[in-house]
Amino acid sequence: MYAMLDPSRFTVFVTGATSGFGEAICRRFAAAGARIVACGRRADRLETLKAELGDRCHAFALDVRDAKAVHAAVAALPAPFDEIDVCVANAGLALGLEPAHQADFDEWQQMIETNCLGLAATVHAVLPGMVARGRGHVVTLGSIAGDHPYPGGNVYGATKAFVRLLAQNLRADLAGTGVRATNIEPGLAETEFSLVRFRGDAERAGGLYRGADPITAEDVAETVFWSTTMPAHLNIVRMEIMPTSQGFGPTVVKRRG
């Protein structure tokens, strides 16, 4: 029999730890006894999280769009937080829901820089150490938008397709190293995600979830926790999760007249 991995032995590095999925993931692993490395852009929220989780949490401000800062931060991690067992590349965002021809290009650029370049920098920074130690797990946060297009998804969906293919290509490169890679692909989930997407419009953001029983941040945290504690010989490559209320619609056909 293969044994489940013991999360109390993990050091878990989480980007985007100041809200939503990232914050819930930190709490879930901390509750199981893991050491947590939490980073994000909002220092005040990180201080609150560290105060909650205690000495087994190392927290610092980091914008993943700064690739040099990401690499420097990983290289400078103090013991006993310096040997990362699980990296959750969670930092990401959606901005706007306008059709492509009406979208703000600055928002497209921010999504690409955060969701693609920032995630790539995170993965690139942690992988050498994992491979050298012969163990580790990279978890990327994708979206069903990386597979299923919808009106207004345009560049956001494209960034999540990048995340999905990067995770799959990691599996091609990492086979035999002892390092695993998993892409978690949530559907409708209620966090600050839509509040950011709709530029602080709480009424519009709330309307998206009303009556839908959406996925929670804790649901996603539990999914990440399960996939990383499975026995070391098993790799959950990708997992698409949606609320029971969500499904797929027909292909849109616009007709003349």
Results as ranks from 00 to 15, higher is better:
Q110F: 02
I236R: 15
E107M: 11
C39W: 05
L5G: 11
A24P: 12
A91Q: 00
G176D: 00
T122I: 03
C26E: 07
L234R: 12
V237H: 14
D63H: 08
T140Q: 10
C26I: 06
A34W: 06
G152A: 02
G136I: 01
V196T: 15
T229E: 09
A17V: 12
E47N: 13
E218F: 03
C39N: 00
Q168T: 10
E52M: 09
V37G: 08
M242G: 01
D106K: 08
R45V: 13
F60I: 01
P186C: 04
C116H: 02
L53V: 09
L208M: 13
A181P: 01
L97Q: 11
W226H: 13
A17N: 09
V12R: 11
F162L: 07
F10A: 11
L234F: 14
I36V: 05
S19H: 13
G211C: 01
L53I: 03
E23Y: 13
F198H: 05
V88W: 02
I215R: 08
D6Q: 15
A75S: 08
T228K: 09
A43M: 12
A172C: 06
G152C: 04
T15Y: 11
A145W: 00
V224L: 13
A76S: 10
Y2W: 14
L170D: 04
G152T: 03
H137Y: 01
A121G: 01
V220I: 15
D82S: 12
W108V: 00
G92M: 01
E47D: 15
T191C: 10
V138A: 02
A125L: 01
I144V: 14
G134D: 03
D104V: 03
T244P: 05
V179N: 03
T216N: 02
F193C: 04
S8P: 05
L165S: 13
C87H: 08
D63M: 06
G136M: 04
G176E: 12
M130H: 00
V155T: 02
Q168P: 01
P250Q: 07
E222K: 14
F13L: 15
G153M: 00
K50R: 14
V86A: 02
V163C: 01
T228P: 10
A30N: 10
A181L: 03
M239T: 13
R171I: 04
G33K: 05
T15E: 06
L165W: 13
F29G: 07
G200C: 06
Y150K: 07
E47Q: 15
E23F: 11
G118S: 00
G211Y: 11
P99C: 01
T229V: 13
R197E: 09
P243G: 00
A120N: 09
M4D: 14
F193V: 09
H124C: 01
G92H: 10
F21N: 10
E23Q: 14
C87K: 08
I236T: 15
D201E: 00
L53K: 12
R204S: 06
E47V: 14
M239C: 11
Y209L: 04
P80Y: 11
P149R: 00
L53H: 10
A172P: 01
Q102P: 07
A175Q: 08
R164K: 12
L5Q: 15
R42G: 04
D6T: 12
A51K: 15
G22N: 06
I215E: 11
A75C: 10
I144W: 04
A181W: 00
R238A: 14
F225Y: 14
G146H: 06
V14I: 15
A89N: 13
P128W: 00
R35S: 09
K160P: 04
P214S: 11
V88Q: 05
H58L: 11
A67G: 06
P99L: 05
